[in-house]
Nucleic acid binder design. Structure first.
Lengths: 214, 214
DNA sequence: CGCTCTATTACCCTACCGAGCAAAGCATTG
DNA sequence: CAATGCTTTGCTCGGTAGGGTAATAGAGCG
């Protein structure tokens, strides 16, 4: 609490309201100082270089560059960067992606003040911060096979209402191949048909609401 | 600005961070005073009765009782309640539902401080606050036919990967009837098949990520 | 250098889907 | 009262989906 050198923190969130709220909360703690802010992933990288904060607190869902990509970019330059995710998203894809990218912690936005502050302090010490329930989910996810790049393209075709033949034409492969991918997708997502597969795609974060391009 | 009686405002959001951020922003304006806060829709109704605020600023997605339901409950008791929605959700269903429930405005969370403050002042005067682009979307939505209750039940069956026969059994109706509903759904959602219909259901907010019950 | 996973193609076959067409009862609304 | 929309049921039929099974080739890993 009475640290001579306060923890230098950077906030990254596209919502000004959230940044101000976090700043207001963290202001109450003398051992933490907000030294930089960014509104998207691209800005986050630039600001990180300039401010060289001890800890980064950032959202996943952001315009321009997503939080996951931003982590990858920062960690690529500074492997020991201490980045915490603070987000509303509890999608499998985001949680798993965050830690694979090199995040040191994942906090849900309905967490209490104390939890956030504690996470920042733990991250600053170089340790990982993660709740038991999230750790359990991560362990469970590690067992499950990933959806491949190609399969994701097929899944996106299904989402758009394309038939197997249509998908085969857009991807320039045989319809048989598409069927094989569909079969693999149904198995991995434990779905009875393509409608359920699309639903699970949304639930897991493989498919997103934004890129509808309708 | 130099009003003798400040606007008495209530904040409703399940995220403490957001409430604190809003409070921090609104504090800067002397004509606005935060007199109450609530963390969910049910609490909002109770607090509204106690505090009788001039204007309410609330989120849509909340536990226990959603923002839309909360508006309905408050407006049912106090028809001239001035309620503004402040949310990240730009789903058709939420926007349309909000105004049908009696909201006076709809602000996206990436709005600037000034926009939020302005909306509060306009609502306090008794007027409606809505941006042009949202108004256009509302007009467009008014043209489109609603998905009926029954159709939504069928759509939820599709989301779960049920066949038409399975759906007919769970709803205790003929399979022919289910097929008729499916046809209506595909037409209304402009979808080629059930997979796309499920996708559009998520995009429009008819289907939600939370109630997966898997 | 095998093992595993992915991508690719292929065949068969059954069950299911969705289009087209029709109609009747009921509630609501203009 | 006519119009509209929802709910319900029915029929036919071609196309599609998805299960089962199998094989080849390349990438990555231990």
């Amino acid at each position: 609490m009475t640290t001579p050198y306060p923890i230098r923190l950077m906030l990254v969130d596209d919502h000004t309201v959230v940044r101000m709220g976090l700043a207001a909360i963290l202001q109450l703690h003398a051992d933490i100082e907000v030294v930089a802010e960014a509104e998207d992933g691209a800005q986050a990288l630039l600001e990180y270089r300039k401010a060289k904060p001890d800890v980064v607190l950032m959202d996943v869902s952001m315009p321009v560059t997503s939080g996951i990509e931003a982590i990858q970019n920062i960690v690529a330059e500074t492997p020991d960067a201490k980045i915490l995710l603070l987000t509303m998203s509890d999608l499998d894809e985001d949680i798993q992606g965050a830690f694979e990218a090199g995040a040191r912690g994942y906090i849900l936005k309905n967490a209490s003040h104390e939890e956030i502050v504690e996470a920042v302090r733990i991250a600053n010490k170089g340790d990982r911060y993660i709740t038991d329930s999230l750790q359990n989910r991560l362990n469970a996810l590690a067992q499950i096979k990933h959806i491949s790049e190609r399969e994701l393209e097929v899944l996106e075709g299904m989402r758009r209402g394309l038939t197997n033949r249509d998908i085969s034409l857009t991807l320039d492969i045989s319809e048989h191949t598409v069927k094989a991918h569909v079969k693999a997708i149904l198995k991995k997502l434990e779905s009875a048909d393509r409608a359920e597969a699309v639903a699970r795609g949304f639930e897991k974060g493989l498919l997103r609401l934004n890129d509808s391009q309708t």
